[in-house]
Design a protein around this nucleic acid. Structure first.
Lengths: 255, 255
DNA sequence: TTCGCAATTTAGGCGCACCTAAATATCAGT
DNA sequence: ACTGATATTTAGGTGCGCCTAAATTGCGAA
């Protein structure tokens, strides 16, 4: 008998998914921090999930949790919901960049697969959401995303903004304020490793200073500098080399 | 301190609202039947709601419940959500007549006022949903709806379908099957009061027999017989006399 | 190796929304 | 006014998802 996903269990699965995209296993404390619940609550929930059938996670005392194939399936489904809702709100209902996350966070647990499909169809089955995150496909595969944190960009390189963390509206506004948008071209003038600040030059020549809290929210790809396509008005990410379809654990679907 | 509405409490308020649109007070059993929960559960919930602050209902033992102004406000808000969602799914996402209810029933509890506003704006602030139900306005007032059950229509009269109950997909399909649509013109040939059957003639001249279960799901208004506007392709309900803005308790927002 | 701290689990409890079974209240009909 | 049927409430209990406080475990530094 299939256990019915709830808003709460979905959120645990998402948290484990995101944490294990970076680390080996998802620890109790880390999950608690993300979900803003007590560590004790997390222990209880992990035990329950791990002994459900089919179990979405595996769990060993003091060693944290990992997703099973089943849990991964559901986590990706929820992420697909989230990113399609964000895309739809942005494209069809004039929501701003920084407004979509909150609404999506709530609705992702309640829309039907049918509604999801219809939204995707209206949008022409987009592969990336308004923040540049890949939208998992119905079959669970994830569009390619070859990028890295701005902080790791080499000084002197020109990079293109490929992803922006969507979970904090204030940061998104700050990024906008700096004149940075998805797909913006940026030249790295300096990386202040101690402060975490990055000094950049925008396409319009203006020099900007990006504080650590902001820099850590940006991911970029190497810009293969086409002089022709100045205004980046083309289709999404034509500048990216199409990567092979990578297995889930390395595909970097961070939040 | 304001009590936070949940899916469950919203559903209780809607049930009380709908029942008290017809009767004096909403009884425990009737609520239980609608919500498919036990009568004991209803008693418990009514007690809790009545002693919350601000209380959305008043409750007296053995005498059922009634909405307070506060409860009415919330009930109408939820109904507005429901009908706007239905309208939006129908108009923007190609949902069929009989498909919208279920999705709306779930989502009505979770969409923000902001999303609701944006959907309404995209649709041009519609006043009636795809089944002809009036969509409450943001201020709580309800568009006019002067109609009556098909079963009460006089033999020989020609009526126009103004509302169709939306809560059962099978019935909606059956209605479609009979060639009846919102705003269809129908001549009443016979009312079989014992069986509840209505015998009608459609605008195309075809005679149809409408069984009680279906007839009781249709509300109609007197057709002021304009021969010119054959295909009823005009704007919504231009045939209806605009009624005065009626107070809530008499406005007939049945489900 | 052992000490101490940080991470984690256990124990005990809470409110919500539901349940069944048993008691009680109301009401219609004689 | 009584009585039986029906409506409703009370009593006692469940699972979920959360909490705090008090153990415990594991691990790195001395």
């Amino acid at each position: 008998m299939r256990t019915v996903p709830t808003e709460s269990t979905d959120n645990y699965l998402k948290a484990v998914f995101e944490i294990t995209a970076v680390q080996e296993r998802a620890g109790t404390n880390e999950i608690a921090r993300r979900l803003k619940v007590s560590a004790a609550s997390v222990t209880g929930m992990l035990k329950k999930l791990a002994s459900a059938t089919p179990a979405p996670i595996t769990y060993e005392k003091h060693r944290g949790a990992e997703l099973t194939a089943e849990g991964q399936r559901r986590a990706i489904e929820v992420i697909r919901h989230h990113r399609l809702i964000e895309s739809y709100l942005h494209a069809a209902l004039d929501y701003g960049w920084e407004e979509v996350h909150e609404e999506a966070e709530k609705l992702e647990h309640f829309i039907s697969e049918d509604l999801e499909d219809r939204m995707a169809a209206k949008l022409g089955f987009p592969e990336y959401d308004p923040h540049g995150h890949p939208i998992p496909r119905r079959d669970g595969s994830i569009p390619p995303c070859i990028d890295f944190p701005l902080r790791q960009a080499a000084v002197g390189a020109t990079v293109r903004v490929s992803r922006v963390s969507d979970d904090d509206a204030a940061s998104l506004r700050a990024i906008r304020q700096l004149g940075i948008d998805l797909h913006s071209l940026l030249e790295v003038l300096e990386q202040r490793t101690e402060s975490g600040e990055a000094i950049l030059r925008r396409a319009d020549g203006v020099r900007i200073e990006v504080p650590r809290e902001i820099a850590s929210r940006l991911r970029v790809s190497v810009a293969v500098a086409e002089r022709r396509t100045e205004g980046n008005s083309g289709r999404d990410r034509t500048d990216l080399v199409e990567g092979e379809r990578r297995p889930l654990e390395s595909s970097g679907v961070s939040q």
